[in-house]
Amino acid sequence: MAHRLLRRERTCRRSDSHRLGEGGETSFGASGRRRSPSARCGSCCQVAGQKERGPVIQALFEAMRPYQWVKNLLVFAPLIFAQKLYDRPSQMGALVAFAAFCCVASGIYLLNDLMDLERDRRHPKKKNRPLPSGRLSPAVAGIAVFVLVGSGLGLAQWRGFLILPLVYFLINVAYSLKLKHLVILDAMCIAIGFLLRVYAGGVAIHVPVSSWLVLCTFFVALLLAFCKRRHELFVLGEEEASGHRKSLEHYSFAFLDQMIAPLGALTVMAYAAYTTSPAAVANFGPKRAHLLVWTVPFVVYGIFRYLFLVHMRSEGGDPTRLLLKDLPTLLNILGWMGTSLWIVYF
Rank of each mutant, 00 (worst) to 15 (best):
R40N: 13
A30E: 14
C41A: 15
S43D: 14
G29Q: 05
S15G: 05
S43V: 09
S38I: 09
S43T: 10
R14K: 11
S27I: 06
A39H: 05
R35E: 15
D16F: 05
A39T: 11
P37K: 02
G21V: 03
S15P: 00
R19G: 00
G29C: 15
D16T: 03
G21E: 09
R33G: 09
C41K: 01
R35V: 10
C41R: 02
R33T: 09
E25K: 01
L20M: 07
E22D: 07
F28E: 06
R14W: 04
E25L: 05
G42D: 13
C41P: 03
P37G: 04
R19M: 11
A30S: 09
E25H: 05
R40W: 06
L20C: 01
S17A: 15
D16Q: 15
S43H: 07
G32N: 03
R19K: 09
S38Y: 02
H18Y: 11
P37H: 04
C41W: 02
R19T: 13
F28A: 06
R19W: 14
R35G: 00
S31D: 15
G32S: 02
S27E: 14
F28R: 10
L20K: 06
E22T: 00
S36C: 09
A30R: 10
S17D: 14
G29Y: 00
G29F: 01
R14I: 09
T26V: 14
R40G: 14
A30N: 01
S31C: 08
R13M: 15
S17T: 08
G23T: 03
C41M: 05
P37Q: 04
G21F: 02
R35K: 12
C44L: 08
P37V: 06
P37S: 08
C41Y: 04
H18G: 04
T26F: 00
S27Y: 01
G42L: 13
G23S: 03
S36E: 13
C41S: 14
S15L: 14
G29E: 11
S38D: 12
G21R: 05
L20N: 03
D16A: 13
R13W: 11
S15V: 09
A30T: 05
G42K: 06
T26K: 11
E22A: 10
S36K: 10
G32F: 01
